[in-house]
């Protein structure tokens, strides 16, 4: 059973990276919107695993995406920050519930799931584009990129989660 968890996560890692670099990095919808769907890894990752391992894996995930898209360490920094903040976000979205042993992501309401995902995405994108643009001279460009890319990512992530929600029991 535990093996199964590792296998699923490894497979998810691989597929999300490939989908991100081969498909979604090339969308350039309206010239600049490239949704980042690999954040779903942070969303799906089991809650009760050790946090240190989780942050390390997020580092690896961000780094892989960075190497592929020549944006060295922007994705990495955004990714580990979100991995580090994830428990705090979950406590905010799900309340104290998530501390219980019986807590499962699939048992929460749709609205809560989407809010959680939205927090992850907005946080990630804000850090990513702040680092990428790295100046407040282009504040409007920065806001435009954050807002529209976040909307794109959120839409696609919600679509993908509902497509692969077979785990629901």
């Amino acid at each position: 059973m535990t093996n199964n968890v590792y296998l699923i996560n490894a497979l998810r890692f691989l597929l999300l990276v490939l989908a991100q670099v081969l498909v979604f990095n090339k969308l350039n919808f309206m010239g600049f919107i490239n949704p980042m769907i690999y954040i779903l890894f942070l969303y799906w990752y089991p809650i009760k695993q050790r946090r240190g391992v989780f942050i390390l894996i997020s580092f690896l995930l961000g780094f892989t995406i960075d190497v592929f898209s020549d944006t060295l360490a922007f994705h990495t920094i955004a990714c580990i920050t979100m991995a580090y903040l994830r428990p705090a976000i979950m406590r905010f979205v799900f309340g104290v519930n998530f501390e219980f042993q019986s807590f499962k992501l699939t048992n929460t309401t749709k609205a809560q799931q989407i809010t959680f995902l939205a927090f992850l995405i907005i946080g990630h994108h804000t850090i990513f584009f702040l680092l990428e643009i790295f100046s407040l001279d282009h504040l409007l460009l920065l806001l435009k990129k954050i807002v529209f890319t976040s909307i794109g990512s959120l839409l696609l992530c919600v679509l993908i989660t509902s497509l692969f929600s077979a785990e629901k029991e």
Partner: peptide
Amino acid sequence: TTLLYLFLLLVGMSLS
């Protein structure tokens, strides 16, 4: 956990 995060953040920053 915090220390690991800060360490990895440092690695990321120096890489970029």
